[in-house]
Design a protein around this nucleic acid. Structure first.
Lengths: 246, 246
DNA sequence: GTATGATATTGTATGAAGTAAGATATTTGG
DNA sequence: CCAAATATCTTACTTCATACAATATCATAC
């Protein structure tokens, strides 16, 4: 219960930050939302996860919501903590530290970051210039990222499958209010990275109870028009509640 | 990307700590390992989770291992991060803060803690007086605990069920190398808090492939002696590997 | 050595859910 | 009207969870 060294007071207290991983599906690809940062030296545009140091009086969850809101304008998104990253090596790259020191006006020694994860519809993010540009980037082709953001994203992608297994409702965060069976199936295929039998998928989807068909259909397709379905949250909660009592 | 206030420099940087939740099963009860702390004022003995502020140059995982080792003498335990707690309210109780300030010789304003979780055999912990006494305490009858340790434990208990669903092997961390079918079943019953059908449990256990019967049996019982089983890790890994490739 | 108490172990039947694959229906563009 | 493309329905097979009752084995008492 003692502290190791007393001599370098300046960097004794680690800083704490929150980083948000927003995942979305754009057509055929799993994407992550990155924000721009201007390099003070070269003036080059680089990218990073939305994140910042926490304020003195805010909770971690609050900080994550604030940052998400500042970056995307979104409120009320299911944003959940999934892991903290605190390796001293995170700040090994001097460029990254220099940029953060300029941005925060603080002497940065070490940062422990609490990573949050949310799923959302790509279209819904209206990139508000007010808080700096943000951009959906395919996971498969990420640019160089500062700190260990690459690793954080990799861990986040692993995490969504675990979430989906436990809370099936969150797939619908990826989808618009009305969606076709094809869209839902493709979403699963992208996340789990494996193809699924169309027929069995239909049967399964219909047996769930909370994916309900509407009367509307897709228009202007060169084939039979697909029916639109919607997610019935009330029904979902009813079914879930039953499961938990058994 | 700005910091809220500049006037109270002393507590601007949050401290970062690691707390370890060790769960074990003692007879019929789920227990957590608590360490003693002497209250400076009253001299009363109080209890808390094993934990401390992190060192300047150590990773979070390292810190957790160090603390676990200092407290219990144990090494090589599956210790995994499960959540961070950072509410400013954590340090609302002045007694707790005062104690920590005395112990650490630091001015404490706010602490973000990264909680770790491990399952282990109750018997294996040799409470080494060297690092202060530690004690297994039933979850059902916890004393008053400092900070939000009560909440951390509650979250940890929820978490083990999730872990167990994803990685069935970890039940065996609760059990000795040789165990009876009854012991394994009771372990499940305690963790999930529901009784299980004996016959179905046997059938299931035998179908798993990695719980293998030995020739040894329990001795000195006033009834038919139970067979000892063991966990075959190699077989388990083989089966798991197959599952992941599909 | 036999009976008894106590617990360990085992089989079978039923239904639900997942998997595989063939057959049919609907729409649009030519 | 036909072909292409996809949606939907159907049927059989397999695997898994659940419910339930009888038999085997051991230590002890007599």
């Amino acid at each position: 219960m003692e502290i190791q060294s007393e001599n370098s007071k300046e960097i004794l207290y680690p800083h704490v930050s929150v980083d948000c991983v927003l995942l979305g599906i754009d057509g055929e690809q799993l994407c992550v939302l990155l924000t721009e940062r201007k390099d003070a030296g070269t003036g080059k545009t680089e990218y990073k996860l939305p994140g910042s140091l926490i304020y003195e009086t805010e909770d971690l969850d609050e900080a994550a919501c604030r940052i998400l809101n500042e970056t995307t304008g979104l409120k009320r998104v299911l944003l959940k903590q999934f892991r903290s990253f605190g390796s001293p090596q995170r700040t090994a790259n001097k460029e990254d530290v220099l940029w953060l020191e300029n941005a925060s006006k603080l002497k940065i020694g070490r940062i422990v970051t609490v990573a949050y994860l949310a799923l959302c519809k790509v279209r819904k993010i209206k990139i508000s210039e007010k808080y700096g540009a943000a951009q959906w980037t395919p996971i498969a082709s990420l640019p160089r990222l500062p700190f260990d953001h690459q690793e954080i994203i990799a861990e986040a992608v692993k995490e969504i499958r675990i979430w989906l297994d436990r809370e099936p409702a969150i797939v619908f965060d990826f989808l618009p209010p009305l969606f076709t069976a094809f869209q839902l199936r493709r979403t699963y295929e992208i996340i789990y990275n494996k193809s699924m039998d169309v027929r069995n998928f239909h049967k399964k989807m219909n047996s769930l109870g909370y994916v309900v068909p509407t009367e509307e259909t897709e228009q202007g397709m060169p084939h039979r028009s697909a029916r639109y379905y919607r997610f019935d949250k009330k029904e979902y909660n009813k079914i879930r509640a039953k499961l938990n009592t058994i």
